[in-house]
């Protein structure tokens, strides 16, 4: 079945992963900017990363017939140094006209600090100024509940259209907070933390199939670039119709992402 991978960190993956995703039916990959596993030493390190995201990865994906799109930001871990965060933020507009940029992301919180929140709010203002959708990372493990609440409160205060914001990595305790406030929700199929396929389907059964997508968030950690394809098999085992599976793995992400004029498949 054709599917969209709406959140994958392909800079951390091999070319064989692109090949496997193409064979599994992946018809579009969207790559948010994130923490590379270590703190970068300079603004120029980010400029190179944004070039990788806007020039090199689209070319690598194209070899397998997959359109590659990206979201730009400085991630919350490195934004804890707010001065550095602002320097990096100042170069992002240089890349916003690139033809595969979808919006600002994945911004958010990591340890729910004041500096992270300040840089988060500056990213939101940048997105509003350029009329771009927003993709949001919620914190890990014990920090997720608090971080999700802080993010939702901040976005409400900023009067952002919730239909143009996806809040990712929801789990059972945060999905309702996000969806009830009118935002889109992303479920991440990631071993050890976040959701298993079984739990992601439970969340669909509990919270409904509207305004929600699933992704692998495959990166440099133990993760699976085929997680969405595997979850669609799990949905079949749970007696989902082909139409409903397609809605979750293709139609929903296409609907949200199509709010970016650059998203075309």
């Amino acid at each position: 079945m054709n599917y969209i991978e709406p959140h994958a960190h392909m800079v951390s993956r091999t070319t064989a992963d692109y090949q496997a995703m193409a064979m599994a039916g992946c018809v579009a990959i969207c790559e948010p900017a994130f923490w590379a596993g270590f703190d970068r030493g300079s603004v120029e390190g980010f400029r190179d990363y944004y070039r990788q995201l806007t020039e090199y990865e689209p070319a690598r994906a194209k070899k397998f017939g997959i359109p590659h799109f990206t979201w730009l930001c400085i991630n919350p871990k490195e934004a804890e140094d707010a001065g550095f965060g602002r320097e990096v933020l100042s170069i992002i507009p240089d890349f916003l006209d690139a033809p595969t940029v979808l919006g600002i992301g994945e911004i958010g919180l990591n340890k729910n600090t004041k500096n992270e929140l300040a840089i988060f709010e500056e990213h939101v203002a940048l997105a509003v100024k350029h009329d771009l959708p927003i993709l949001i990372h919620t914190p890990h493990l014990e920090d997720k509940l608090k971080g999700t609440r802080l993010i939702v409160d901040s976005l409400k205060n900023a009067n952002v259209d919730p239909g143009r914001v996806i809040i990712d990595h929801v789990e059972e305790h945060t999905a309702g907070i996000v969806l009830d406030a009118g935002f889109w929700a992303g479920m991440t199929l990631y071993p050890e933390s976040k959701c298993t396929p079984g739990r992601a389907i439970d969340i669909l059964e509990t919270f409904g199939n509207e305004n929600i997508w699933m992704n692998s968030a495959c990166d440099w950690g133990i993760s699976d670039p085929l997680a969405v394809a595997k979850c669609s098999i799990e949905m079949k085992k749970r007696q989902y119709t082909p139409e409903l599976i397609q809605k979750v793995v293709f139609d929903n992400p296409k609907k949200f992402l199509s709010q970016s004029p650059n998203f075309r498949i």
Partner: peptide
């Protein structure tokens, strides 16, 4: 297994959870 505090932290002392 969640932190139930509500105020943003002053600073991050660790990067992980």
């Amino acid at each position: 297994l969640s932190d139930h505090s509500t105020e943003p932290a002053d600073a991050a002392t660790i990067q992980f959870a």
